[in-house]
Design a protein around this nucleic acid. Structure first.
Lengths: 144, 144
DNA sequence: ATGCAAATGCAAACTATTCGCATTTAAAAG
DNA sequence: CTTTTAAATGCGAATAGTTTGCATTTGCAT
């Protein structure tokens, strides 16, 4: 079994979506994949800069838009701070837990909704295609 | 039983929150309460204008911020269009159903979460204080 | 190697929202 | 009812996040 390194891994992902394999996109995807929480565009931009990338902010905006269109990244607007956040799209259905104290965001897997969606369809006639759930509270550290 | 008219009704609500009873706020609360869907600030502004109100946009922004602080209105950032939306706060816990076709937003009451929140607390240690759920799909009219 | 469409940089434009400050007004106090 | 005062409002300018136009560069198919 060949163990592809990151470079080839992302190259393959990009090729499958008809996107060009650029250095910026490789760094960007790596940052996204390694992050445990959704990132704002500026956070991604800063992380790229730290890796000696001379990328411009508008390229990051454009790239994230592209990643989202091609479903390589998920986009959310949690928290009322007016900033969009992105995370690597694992295709796994997940939700977020957001700390009201320190704003930490934690992914939680598992979802109790299969049946509920059917109920809603029955009650409203909507053809439910998906949902978004965010839970707010205080993380262990902020409960002091 | 005395049947209070709208004017007195909103006057009372505002007084309870320590807010002045202005004409704009009465119109604003009436618009909010009569809307079946969350409204953007601009939508509220336009509706106020139609009712011969000479209110300025910044006043609407400030008023909605105040209504939110005083918990007279709920604020959401559903849909990735970068606009905040407000709705009259009925104090009833509810969620939204958003049509992917026509962007119509429908409120749904009822919530299947009491137990799930406890599970999350057990798994993550988070003290869960609330949540936000939006469901996406196609309304009956858009399923054609 | 060559050509073209895609990707990028840069600055300007845009959009939603906030803010400073002068003016008005609701409502408490007299 | 008048005075007083803090809250509410209007207006324009300022911000912040994001998008866009255009010239330049760069993958990658030929």
């Amino acid at each position: 079994m060949i163990n592809l390194n990151d470079c080839n891994k992302y190259k393959k992902i990009l090729a499958e979506k008809g996107l060009k394999n650029t250095g910026y996109r490789n760094i960007l995807l790596k940052i996204l994949e390694e992050s445990r929480t959704p990132l704002t565009v500026e956070e991604i931009y800063i992380k790229m800069k730290k890796q000696n990338s001379a990328v411009s902010l508008s390229t990051v905006y454009r790239s994230m838009e592209t990643m989202w269109e091609k479903k390589l990244a998920a986009k959310t607007t949690i928290m009322n701070d007016g900033k969009a956040r992105y995370e690597f799209n694992t295709m796994e259905h997940k939700h977020h837990l957001i700390c009201l104290g320190c704003s930490k965001i934690v992914d939680i897997s598992g979802c109790p909704f299969k049946d509920y969606e059917k109920n809603i369809t029955g009650e409203t006639g909507f053809d439910v295609r998906g949902h978004n759930l965010e839970m707010y509270g205080y993380c262990p550290a902020c409960q002091k």
